[in-house]
Design a protein around this nucleic acid. Structure first.
Lengths: 345, 345
DNA sequence: CTGTTAGCGCCTTCAC
DNA sequence: GTGAAGGCGCTAACAG
C-alpha cells in the first residue's frame, strides 16, 4: 500500500523540529492548518522534514488542548429499518469525505445512556447527529462536551437546529390519490407511536382523511417492521379493498401484503396500499405499494452544511424543512420501477 | 435526566483529590477500574468526593498516557446489504455492552484510506474489526496504533485472528437438496468476485456440483444487490426450471424472481432458488428461496471474546470457524417461515 | 500504602 | 519571526 513499509511511526513534532533545525513551536506553527507566523523558508524546511519522516500529528494530544477530535457522533435507537441502509451509508460516506470520522452510538438497549456517553470518546465529539428520540435537545446537549447538536428526530429546540422532512404535503397527495381511485374509507397502520416523526405522520393522515372526506375505519399499531405488518395483516385486510390501506413504512405494508396474499389475490387490482421510504422492493412487481419519501441528497447536504460551518449553530438555527415526495406505484400511475424520481421544486 | 442540571463539568481529578484530602495519584488509583494499591478508607473518600462533584474522567487525557481509548473500529466497504442491518445492529449493541464505543469506518469510496485512518481517532482504537477486504492483515495492522486486528472478511493471516463461517457444508447441503428435487443442472449467480468470501463460495459450489454430478450451465456476475438480480433475471431464467438457480445472496435471488415473475408463473412449483443470508423476506410467501446462513450469536460471541481478552491476540489466534446452516424454503421442506431455526450441533 | 515528580504530544502564551 | 516555558488532565515511575 505505502511505498515503504513505514514502521508504525512514533515520530513526534519534536523529531520534525530537530530535523528541520527549528524549535518545536515553529514546527507546530508550520504544520498548523491555519496561518501562523512562520518565515516561508523555515516553513518549507519543516514541511519537508515532516514529509521525509512521515510525521502524522497525534490527534489525542492535539485534542487535549484544541478540544477538537474531528469526530461526529451519530445517535440512533437501533439499526433496523430497510431505509436505514441507504441513509446511514450515504451519511457516513458524506461525513468522511469532509475528513471527519463517525462514532455510531446505538442507545436503544442502553439503560444508563448518559453515563455511557460521558465515559467514552463520544463526550469529545465535534457534533452530534441525533436520530434517536431518547431525549430532548437540552438533555442531549449536556451529554457532549460541546453544544453542537443537530436534531434529526423530529424534536425541535430553541438552541439546536432541527432538520425534518415535510411529510404533510405528500401524505395529502397520497390520500388524494386514493380518493381518485374511488376509495372512501381508510385503514391506518402506525409505527412506534412515541416517535415525534410518527406522531406528525399520524396527525397529517387524520387531517388529510378529514379534509378529503375519507372515513378512517381503524388504526393498527405496528413497529415499522415487516414482521409487525405480517402480524397485523388479517386485521388490516378485514375491511376489504374498499378501504385504502395506509402505513407509515413500506416494510409494514410488505408484511401485510405477504401474509395476506391469499385474501388479496381474489380482487387483486382493487387494493390500494401506501407506505413510506420508497424502498426499491416496494416499487417492484412483488408489492403494489405506493410510497412517500424525501430528498436524501438535500437532507444530507443540510447536515453537512452545519458540520462544516460550526458558526451556523450560533444563529438560533431553527427548523429546516426538506421537501417530501409522493410516488404512486408503477402499477397505478407512478413512473416505471427504478426510474429515478425527478426532484421536485 | 440527571437529578441536578449539572454544568458541563470542568471538574478534574485534582478537584476530587483536594476534596478527599489526598494526592492526585491516590485519587487516580482509587478511580481506576483496575485494582491499584490504595487504602480502603481513602478509596472510599475519593469515590465519595468524585460522586459529590460529579467527576467524570477525561478519556482524551487518559488516553494520552494509557494509550487506550475504549474505542473499537468497524471497517466496512459500505453498508448496503439487507444482511448488514441485523449484523451491525447486534454487533454494535454487543460491543457497547462492554462499555466500548464504535467508530464505523466506511472505506468503500475512499481513495486514500491509509491517510484517512491515520489522521483520525481511528488510529488510536483498541481494536479493529475488518469486514472490508480493502487490504490484507499486514497492511491493516500498519493503519492502527496497535496490532489488534480481527479479520472478518475471509482473509487469513499469521498474526491476526480470523473468524469465518463454514459455508462449504451448507452449500453442499443446498446442492444435495436441489438434486433430491430432481435437478441435474445448475446456474450460479455470483457477487463481488474480488471478495475472498465470495471466492470460497464459488469454489464450494463448483466442488459440490462436481461431487453430486450437477452440470453447471452458466455463471452470471452480480453484486449481491436486488437490482443486480433484476438485471440478470432473463439470462438466469433462460435455462428453464430444469436448472436449479444458486445465488450468493438472497437479495439477488429476489431480484431474479421479481423481474421474472411472468416467466416463472407458468411453471411455478418447478423452479428452485437458493440464496444466502436467510432474510426473513426470502422465507416469506413472496419468494420461494431456500437460504444459507450462519449462527450470528456465535459469531458475535467470538468477536467479543477477543475484544474483552486482549491477551488472546498474542497466541497466534488463527482461524476460528462458525458453523453454517442450510434452510430450505418453507414451501419445500423447511420449517415454517419465521420459526427460529434450531442451532446445529 | 502514599506522595512527589515527570512526562504522554501538542499548542500557546510570552518574552525576546 | 522566533524560542523557551508552561499546561491541557491524567497516570506511570520513583522514592518514601
Amino acid at each position: 500500500m505505502s511505498s515503504k513499509v513505514s514502521p508504525p511511526s512514533k515520530i513526534t513534532i519534536a523529531d520534525v523540529a530537530a530535523l528541520a533545525g527549528v524549535s518545536r513551536a515553529i514546527a507546530s506553527r508550520a504544520l498548523s492548518p491555519e496561518d501562523r507566523p512562520v518565515s516561508a523558508e523555515k516553513k518549507a524546511r519543516v514541511l519537508a522534514a515532516a514529509e521525509q519522516l512521515g510525521f502524522k500529528p497525534n490527534l489525542i494530544a492535539r485534542s487535549l488542548k484544541s478540544r477538537t477530535l474531528n469526530l461526529v457522533a451519530v445517535i440512533v435507537n437501533h439499526i433496523h429499518d430497510f431505509s436505514d441502509l441507504v441513509l446511514f451509508d450515504r451519511l457516513i460516506a458524506a461525513i468522511q469525505d469532509t475528513g471527519k470520522q463517525v462514532v455510531l452510538l446505538r442507545v436503544g438497549s442502553l439503560d444508563r445512556v448518559e453515563e455511557f456517553l460521558r465515559n467514552g470518546v463520544a463526550w469529545h465529539v465535534d457534533a452530534a447527529l441525533v436520530f434517536s428520540d431518547f431525549a430532548d435537545a437540552a438533555s442531549v446537549r449536556t451529554m457532549f462536551r460541546n453544544d453542537r447538536v443537530i436534531m434529526l428526530n423530529g424534536l425541535h429546540d430553541q438552541n439546536a437546529p432541527s432538520i425534518v422532512a415535510d411529510e404533510a404535503t405528500p401524505i395529502a397527495a397520497a390520500v388524494a390519490h386514493a380518493k381518485a381511485r374511488g376509495k372512501t374509507r381508510a385503514v391506518l397502520v402506525t409505527g412506534r407511536q412515541t416517535s415525534p416523526v410518527e406522531q406528525a405522520r399520524i396527525a397529517a393522515y387524520r387531517a388529510a382523511f378529514s379534509a378529503l372526506g375519507l372515513q378512517l375505519l381503524a388504526e393498527h399499531a405496528g413497529d415499522y417492521s415487516y414482521e409487525s405488518g405480517r402480524a397485523l395483516s388479517s386485521d388490516v385486510l378485514a375491511e376489504g379493498p374498499e378501504a385504502a390501506i395506509f402505513t407509515t413504512a413500506d416494510a409494514m405494508a410488505m408484511g401485510v401484503v405477504d401474509a395476506g396474499r391469499a385474501t388479496i389475490a381474489s380482487r387483486a387490482g382493487d387494493w390500494a396500499f401506501y407506505g413510506f421510504d420508497a424502498l426499491p422492493l416496494a416499487r417492484s412487481e412483488a408489492y403494489p405499494i405506493s410510497s412517500i419519501s424525501y430528498d436524501l441528497d438535500q437532507f444530507i447536504g443540510k447536515v453537512l452544511e452545519f458540520l462544516t460551518t460550526p458558526g451556523l449553530f450560533e444563529d438560533g438555527a431553527g427548523v429546516i424543512t426538506i421537501p417530501g415526495n409522493f410516488m404512486p406505484h408503477p402499477s397505478c400511475g407512478g413512473p416505471a420501477a427504478f426510474e429515478r424520481w425527478p426532484a421536485e421544486g
